[in-house]
Design a protein around this nucleic acid. Structure first.
Lengths: 133, 133
DNA sequence: ACAATAAAGTACAATGATGAACAAAAATCA
DNA sequence: TGATTTTTGTTCATCATTGTACTTTATTGT
């Protein structure tokens, strides 16, 4: 599954970790590397390694903030926006292909399982707080 | 958080990925490397690298299955069982330390968020199946 | 029985994520 | 203002995981 997505992204000449970056930048343009790392739940050093590659590939642009010379604000290039749209289409198609037909029932079953799990957890929590032993 | 656990495990001379292995072996002794990898949701090659290290450290023992010469069955040594118990105690203590006092409310809030999320998802699913557009 | 296929384990190279140590710029505050 | 502390981003060494190719042993089909 991940393997398939990786293979399809290779044709756009981007690597899997770049996809999340592109999608977030597509939605929130002009944010800093810090903010982006925070949104993606990864360390800042990660961005420091990935973003220069993407800049060289012409997908993004990094412009220094005029007020704060420490921060680099991130923007998609025309090329980057185009690639992002293609990548999202690929991803969506893959998901629909994977999810189509059979597993709708499974989704419902999972949701019900989760509900039961939550109920169980809640009652255990209530017991724990009643008997702090 | 993960960092703290790692540091505490270092004193037992085991690495983080070994902890999951030990705990599963503590519960299900005699399983094969394949089965263990499946339980841990990782690839078989992972086990092939981690387990020989643990065997050298005297935590586990790998005995060939008599019926099937391909499979290696896994057993905890006395030492391994002892280390596992200590590690689980450390882990539990850390969790209780982290979870104590404040975040009980947060647990309940999270559970409620999940419930709402599930309801939303279910209605979206129903809409999707009504209008397959 | 035997040929083809599948499964268990191993070796290895490639990828990705992480934290620590560091430099530059900004904020704090005395 | 000037000193201290934070914050941004970078670099680097380390560790973990993955997939692929391979060997050995079982299973399956004919």
């Amino acid at each position: 599954m991940q393997t398939v997505l990786t293979r399809e992204l290779t044709e756009l000449d981007i690597k899997p970790p770049h996809l999340d970056i592109l999608i977030n930048l597509y939605r929130f343009e002009g944010i800093s590397q810090q903010e982006l790392a925070h949104k993606l739940l990864v360390g800042r050093s990660n961005m420091s390694m990935a973003l220069p590659q993407m800049e060289k590939r012409g997908l993004i642009e990094r412009r220094g903030d005029t007020k704060d010379k420490r921060v680099l604000r991130l923007y998609l290039t025309r090329e980057g926006r185009s690639v992002t749209e293609k990548a999202m289409a690929i991803q969506t198609a893959l998901i629909e292909r994977t999810l189509s037909s059979e597993p709708l029932d499974q989704c419902m079953a999972m949701a019900e399982s989760m509900e039961r799990l939550i109920v169980t957890l809640q009652s255990e929590i209530r017991e724990d707080s009643r008997e702090p032993s």
